[in-house]
Design a protein around this nucleic acid. Structure first.
Lengths: 140, 140
DNA sequence: GTCTCTGCAAACCGTTTGCAACGCA
DNA sequence: TGCGTTGCAAACGGTTTGCAGAGAC
């Protein structure tokens, strides 16, 4: 799990300013080990910085993705979610409410090798998602 | 692979009219064993029916998905692609041009079982995509 | 003081909706 | 002939862009 200090260091090295908005966004993202939409981050950020704009959230979440501080998780028709950078893993998503949890399972390298062997593609990565119903939605 | 006759039969059973637009769209989709975006289907349809509107393509591709004649393939930030209904399989997509091919690999049921065992989710399905570079883009 | 960053407003673009005219059954 | 369908235009909604003023360093 990436530390706040490392993230701040990365910004400094690239001469990217540590604005209050960026600092607070890093604070939110690096705690909680969760998955947020842009809108959710905007709401959370607004609690401590009421004047922040959603443009700034977009600007910085994209910047953080480019810097490798944050990973974008894209899922079917749902809005992208973002998580603080950690080791590669898969995700389970609730089809009802969008709730998302991590799955730590060994990377399916042998399936990648198979896909490469039967295609004319040079395979570089793969993505695996699970769909289901979370316990909260199950009860309803 | 679903036949045109079966598709037409499904429409009849549900009292859905077989308009020329629908017939031609089924013709395009059921041949070629490819993956198309809405825009691509619209272009192809326009070759034989110049007056067709993109609204009609949206209406019918969504209808066909609901009827199970067509499967929507959603991929990260890319536009959805659609394929004629066939047995479940995975996809490889070219990160450069979006070119897509099928991968017939046994469903990863044991990974689903694992995901279920370590989460509080009732897992119903999963999705696996491979990313890479197709031979065309490799040469460039 | 400089130059990046913020935040507002407008643009963007794929998709959906409303609706009047059309045409399949 | 009736009602489902088409196709136009407008609306929609998440995201990006342009830009003038603010502010980090």
């Amino acid at each position: 799990m990436l530390s706040i200090e490392n993230a701040v260091q990365t910004l400094k090295e690239k001469n990217i300013r540590l604005t209050p908005q960026r600092h607070e966004l890093i604070n939110i993202l690096s705690k909680g080990n969760k998955h947020w939409t842009v809108e959710e981050l905007y709401q959370l950020l607004n609690e401590s910085m009421p004047s922040v704009s959603i443009t700034t959230v977009y600007n910085n979440i994209n910047l953080f993705c480019e810097l490798g501080l944050v990973k974008e998780i894209q899922f079917g028709e749902a809005l992208s979610k973002y998580e603080w950078k950690k080791e590669d893993h898969y995700h389970i998503v609730c089809s009802e409410c969008g709730e998302m949890v991590d799955v730590w399972y060994p990377a399916l390298k042998e399936v990648e090798v198979f896909a490469q062997s039967i295609s004319k593609f040079d395979i570089s990565s793969h993505n695996l998602q699970f769909y289901g119903t979370c316990s909260n939605c199950e009860q309803k």
